[in-house]
Design a protein around this nucleic acid. Structure first.
Length: 169
DNA sequence: CCAGACGTTGTT
DNA sequence: GTCTGG
DNA sequence: CCAGACGTTGTT
DNA sequence: GTCTGG
C-alpha cells in the first residue's frame, strides 16, 4: 500500500541528473517544476498531487503527472472523478487482467522517485504514521503505470499515474 | 441481450 | 458509529 | 487510506 | 474498450 509520500525536488530530479545533461535539468527546473506541487513533504494521493514521473517513452526526461490513473476508456469528466480515487494504487498481481490497468501495464510504465512514504500502523485502537525511507536517504524508486487522458470538453491532455503495489516481503 | 462497472486498503 | 473530503 | 465532521435558520 | 451481473 502506498497513499502518502514525501518527494523533494532534489530526489525527483536524481534520474535526470544521472542520465541526462545539465541543460536538461535547468530546463526541467524552469518549465516543469512550476507545474507541479513539488516539493511534497507529506501528501496523500487523495489530494491528487502533481509531480514528475519517468515514463518508458521518455525515460530520462521526466513528465508532469497527476496521481490517480484515469483509464483510457473514460469518456466523461464525471466518470473520471468517480474513478480517480480508486486507482492511486494498482495491485501488481492483477494489472494485466483489470480493465483499468491492462493497457497501461502493457504499454505505459513509469518510475517514480520519492524520498519516502508513510504507512499507518494500529496500536491499542489508535493509528500512528511511520515514515519509511532508505537508510542512506537514497531515493525509493517505485514502479508505476500511466495514461494520457484527453478531456473531451477542453481537449486538454491530462497525464495520470498509479503506483504498483505487491504483497509485503 | 443491455446496463453499468471498471478499484484500493486493512483485519486487534 | 458512520460518512465525507482530501 | 486517514482525519474530521456529524446541523439548522434567515438574509443586506 | 471490455467485462460482469441481472
Amino acid at each position: 500500500m502506498c497513499y502518502d509520500i514525501k518527494a523533494t525536488i532534489e530526489t525527483q530530479l536524481k534520474r535526470a541528473q544521472r542520465k541526462g545533461d545539465a541543460q536538461a535539468v535547468d530546463e526541467i527546473m524552469e518549465t516543469l517544476i512550476p507545474l507541479t506541487h513539488l516539493p511534497i513533504y507529506h501528501s496523500s494521493g487523495f489530494s491528487r498531487p502533481e509531480l514528475l514521473i519517468y515514463t518508458d517513452r521518455s525515460p530520462d526526461f521526466p513528465e508532469v503527472a497527476k496521481w490517480g490513473l484515469v483509464p483510457h476508456w473514460v469518456r466523461k469528466k464525471a466518470d473520471m472523478k468517480k474513478q480517480w480515487n480508486n486507482t492511486l494504487n494498482a495491485r501488481g498481481e492483477t494489472i494485466f487482467k483489470l480493465n483499468s490497468f491492462r493497457k497501461a501495464a502493457n504499454e505505459s510504465r513509469c518510475l517514480i522517485y520519492i524520498d519516502g512514504l508513510y504507512e499507518h500502523h494500529n496500536f491499542e485502537k489508535q493509528t500512528y504514521p511511520f515514515y519509511i525511507f532508505n537508510k542512506d536517504h537514497s531515493p525509493i524508486i517505485l514502479a508505476g503505470l500511466f495514461n494520457e487522458w484527453i478531456n473531451p470538453e477542453t481537449m486538454g491532455k491530462l497525464l495520470t499515474f498509479s503506483i504498483v503495489t505487491t504483497t509485503g516481503n
